[in-house]
Design a protein around this nucleic acid. Structure first.
Lengths: 280, 280
DNA sequence: GCCATGATGAGGTAACTTCCACATGATCCG
DNA sequence: CGGATCATGTGGAAGTTACCTCATCATGGC
């Protein structure tokens, strides 16, 4: 897997000498940029140092959040801590919501998909369905997830990259999306109140609006923790949506407002088959 | 990390019953879609089965190429075998080339970057330099790699996703790029002959041409194995380039043609510090 | 009903990792 | 120069994982 740092085959690497630690750290990082995991024993062999030393290297990198420790080695650090934290909570719920929403997509549909962790689950679920469809998205993760399925045509919108969201945003993005005309818009939100879905980030709100404008059917995917949560910017009134997909029904005034706005509520079934969840 | 498949806390899971294998396989895959690695021992706990069983599951999935075995667990399968194979060969060379090319970027430059494994290395190296610059690219990997550096502004071009290339292509892509005016174009190629860089894929060639059209300085990044290799489509004549970055100098007629076309050749230094390489 | 098959568990050993405490050589700095 | 610190190696105990063989228990046929 890994090639020796230096290969003066004749010269049997003196035991102690210059501190080669930074070089090893860089090498580990570089190895991980190509492979999802490395093993300590292999690195030790490749570097010509003891496993203990590599273990300390990995420990250090992992303390800095640059890699993730695994038994016997290291793996690529999880992506952005920001998204990652969000990804970690309620993975099962989001995944179920994504799956339920994917079932609402008819074959040969053209779908616009927002960036976010729930919508990425939607893309994965859609890919698993293996139907033909076209997906327009500003989410890099969703694009790659959907790309895994050969029967999906994936079109990526242009824009300025946000690493934390793993998507693209900006005027270019909205302008691009507005050139299309699609069957379905599938968006997420930071919160959902009687006034409609709301967003913490303005640029994300603009992209969502552009998508909603262009679609006949407009789905909002949110887990119940979003119910009642208000954020800076209101994306659209409830009337702007046609469907809500969540894992549990809303209650109280929100439920009433949804009914008034004639938003169809789809509940993600409590999945009996499989529901893995990652934590720590 | 993983939650039990079913949690009838009262009912102590009968030893033998319905074959729950497919459910576990799906759960493992799903867990890996969120986390880069899973551990067999954790899965065994979560599923309430023996580690041996999970090990057999993982073995099976890995035989089908759906996950990759690691000591103690499994990790996400490497991406597309296509790109992966290319990624595996000459990683060290490509990485050095990318690094050398990144050094040619002046602060505050605006750069167009092609999709490909060498150009992705360029993006990583540029991110490590931590200078301010703007990057326009059709490569998802390069975008994410560059996004890791806060001082880089990354703009992603629109287009149709190619999963194997992990980039976007098509008329949208070229049209978008043509709206800009940049300092540097950095492209890769399938081969390089006296007639210029050439490409196996037509749509990739069109994107490269669009980039070359818009840049004052035009760098081609290739490793020496590309020298003399001819492919279907010629991207541009040698005169269309201003710089070539490789890890070793070209020779013979190619060298002469490069000199005639006044292409500056930059050699990536034989890196003494670090050169890890993954192989089997 | 009996048997082949598939799924799964159990037990045990070998191999591997981890962790820890301690030793060594080198470098840096008053 | 002496001491503090850093980078590393060593050795061994303890904890994990891997692998192999054998046993068990349904299921689906025939």
């Amino acid at each position: 897997m890994i090639r020796p740092l230096c290969h003066h085959a004749a010269m049997p690497r003196r035991n102690t000498s210059a501190p080669r630690k930074p070089a090893r750290h860089a090498a580990i990082l570089e190895a991980l940029s190509t492979d999802p995991t490395v093993r300590i024993s292999e690195l030790a062999d490749a570097f010509g140092v003891s496993a203990e030393t590599v273990r300390r290297d990995v420990e250090e990198l992992s303390a800095r959040g640059m890699v993730r420790r695994t038994y016997g080695g290291a793996s690529t650090a999880a992506r952005q801590p920001v998204l990652d934290e969000r990804e970690r909570v309620q993975v099962a719920e989001r995944s179920r919501i994504g799956r339920a929403a994917a079932l609402l997509v008819p074959p040969d549909a053209v779908v616009m998909l927002d960036a976010g962790s729930t919508t990425t689950h939607f893309a994965r679920a859609l890919a698993r369905r293996e139907i033909r469809a076209t997906l327009l998205t500003n989410s890099l993760d969703a694009a790659v997830a959907a790309g895994a399925c050969a029967s999906l045509r994936v079109i990526v919108a242009p824009g300025e990259l946000s690493v934390t969201e793993r998507g693209v945003y900006g005027p270019e993005t909205a302008a691009f999306l507005r050139r299309f005309h699609v069957d379905l818009a599938v968006i997420g939100a930071s919160g959902l109140t009687e006034d409609g879905p709301c967003e913490a980030e303005s640029r994300a709100a603009w992209v969502k609006r552009a998508m909603l404008e262009r679609a006949a059917r407009r789905l909002l995917l949110v887990d119940t923790r979003k119910f009642g949560a208000a954020f800076l910017e209101c994306v659209c009134p409830l009337q702007g949506l046609t469907d809500l997909v969540a894992e549990a029904p809303p209650a109280g005034p929100l439920a009433a407002a949804l009914a008034r706005a004639r938003v169809a509520v789809t509940l993600a079934p409590d999945d009996e088959r499989v529901e893995p969840r990652l934590h720590v």
